[in-house]
């Protein structure tokens, strides 16, 4: 004789960390020029991020790629240029500075912004709080089911947890 229930705990709170993904996309007929331009422009973007207060350890290269561009309308599809793409993810700990940091990076030459997202640096307390709510929710459901079936709850047999 047993009863199995699911409980859910939700804790909503303001994020304390922002992440922005941005970089430079450069096209040029000459690969060397495209590569050098991208490197210079990205160095300026990185300098702007640092000047805006982003720590070195909070800047991580996300992608670096070079694509050949061809003219597909020509029979032999000749190479018409190169596309160099370089991007980083920057972690911003002062949320109020997110917009100005982004603007500073764009001013410095970032011409590709692929995302802004948010997170919690230390979700431990929120998780603990959500866990308490989830267990209380499960307990209340189980007590209801027991009462409705003229039974009483005994000890817990198994318990498992999911998190998102």
């Amino acid at each position: 004789r047993s009863v199995t229930v699911n409980g859910e705990g939700r804790v909503s709170l303001p994020p304390d960390t922002a992440y922005i993904a941005l970089g430079v996309d450069i096209r040029d007929p000459d690969l060397g020029v495209a590569q050098r331009t991208a490197a210079e422009q990205m160095d300026a973007v990185l300098a702007a991020l640092r000047a805006a207060g982003v720590a070195e350890k909070d800047i991580q290269t996300g992608a670096y790629s070079i694509y050949v561009e061809r003219d597909y309308n020509q029979p032999n599809q000749p190479i018409i240029g190169y596309h160099v793409s370089h991007s980083v993810t920057a972690k911003i700990r002062d949320l109020n500075a997110t917009g100005s940091t982004l603007a500073a990076a764009i001013d410095a030459g970032a011409n590709n912004v692929s995302g802004v997202w948010f997170g919690l640096e230390n979700p431990g307390d929120a998780i603990a709080q959500a866990r308490e709510l989830a267990v209380a929710d499960a307990r209340a459901k189980a007590e209801d089911l027991a009462r409705l079936s003229d039974s009483t709850l005994g000890p817990v047999l198994t318990i498992s947890e999911g998190y998102s």
Binding site: R1, S2, V3, T4, V5, N6, G7, E8, G9, R10, V11, S12, L13, P14, P15, A18, L95, T98, G99, L102, A103, V116, F118, G119, L120, P123, A126, I127, Q129, A130, R131, L133, A134, V135, A138, R139, A142, A146, S149, S151, T152, L153, G154, P155, V156, L157, T158, I159, S160, E161, G162, Y163, S164
Partner: peptide
């Protein structure tokens, strides 16, 4: 640009099996 952080949500689920007396 103006960036709105909105809210973050932590969702935790448990599955509990009780004995029934």
């Amino acid at each position: 640009p103006t960036i709105n952080p909105g809210s973050a949500e932590v969702v935790l689920t448990v599955t509990v099996k009780y004995t029934l007396n």
